[in-house]
Design a protein around this nucleic acid. Structure first.
Length: 279
DNA sequence: CGGACAACCTGGCGGC
DNA sequence: TGCCGCCAGGTTGTCC
């Protein structure tokens, strides 16, 4: 579910209640299945007594930097992290998969209806992180870098934006948004972009993600901020439409948004603003 | 490298 | 109201 802006929003709001806290243990209400990289026994024993020094993000992963280890969480489609006093219930507890009691009486909880999320405890993130492309909001991600990475890639633009080894953190919503801002058709082939188009795409990726962070993430069906409230980003989306609801027109030209399937993913674009041929 | 597709799971929604 | 099929923001692995 969450893409870079949603994960970044979660990281930012978890810092205040969590940095400086010490984790007592990890408790799994039910069989974790393939949620963790370690057995329940090993993970809970090894995390006990570790202090949360800082919380960072890489791509769509949350990284809790502990005294000795890193706790790495991927929310996938429906994962949710939140902090509650131990005695207090929360609607997301219905799908509670693991919780971490803390030294101040609070708990860090992870709930996940669809059970795709992952919680790993590692010494070195490289143990579990896959090949990830550059962070699109870092200064090092320039239009020149994007151009180099596009070179020789014949694949369809939309699919490439979703490839985490190409650029990290872009998911289905913000890929559609970036292409709309850049005025590029999602089916354009990556190696056919002109220099001007590459510049537009570079700026558009960053703008789509920055706007998403500014509005604290898109609460399209499952995503909620750690405090349970909704982000606002869904109200500002240019092209992406929830559940194929195409009644809202293109904010630029007022024409209808079209939905097609690209690489098995719903893809929304404005055929007027994003022509199939370079303009 | 790339495209197609299945798999991992469950809940919500529209349609009948 | 109830049942059914379809849809979902992510990622990985396999096959061709």
């Amino acid at each position: 579910m969450p893409e870079l802006p949603e994960v970044e929003t979660a990281v930012r709001s978890l810092r205040e209640p969590l940095v400086g806290r010490t984790i007592y243990t990890a408790t799994f209400p039910a069989d974790p299945g393939r949620m963790t990289n370690l057995t329940v026994e090993v993970l809970s024993a090894r995390i006990a007594g570790q202090r949360i020094e800082s919380i960072t993000r890489r791509a769509k992963y949350l990284i809790f930097n502990l005294s000795a280890d890193k706790l790495i969480v991927h929310l996938k489609m429906t994962g949710h992290l939140y902090v509650m006093p131990a005695a207090e219930a929360n609607p997301f507890d219905r799908w509670l998969r693991v919780y971490f009691p803390l030294d101040n009486g609070d708990q860090l909880r992870f709930s996940d209806a669809r059970k795709f999320g992952r919680v790993s405890l590692v010494r070195d993130p490289a143990e579990i992180l896959p090949d990830l492309g550059p962070e699109p909001l870092d200064d090092e991600f320039t239009a020149k870098v994007l151009k180099e990475r596009l070179t020789g890639r014949s694949t369809i633009l939309k699919s490439l934006l979703l490839d985490q080894s190409f650029v990290a953190g872009v998911g289905n919503i913000y890929a559609d948004e970036a292409l709309h801002i850049a005025k590029l058709h999602p089916l354009r082939h990556a190696n056919t972009l002109t220099n001007a188009e590459i510049k537009r795409l570079h700026a558009a990726i960053r703008q789509a993600l920055s706007d998403g962070i500014l509005h604290e993430g898109a609460s399209i069906n499952w995503y909620r901020k750690p405090d349970g409230t909704r982000g606002e980003s869904q109200d500002y989306l240019r092209a992406y439409r929830e559940l194929g609801n195409l009644s809202k027109p293109c904010p630029v030209c007022g024409g209808p948004i079209t939905k097609i399937v690209v690489g098995q993913r719903g893809t929304h674009f404005c055929p007027t603003c994003q022509p199939a041929k370079p303009r």
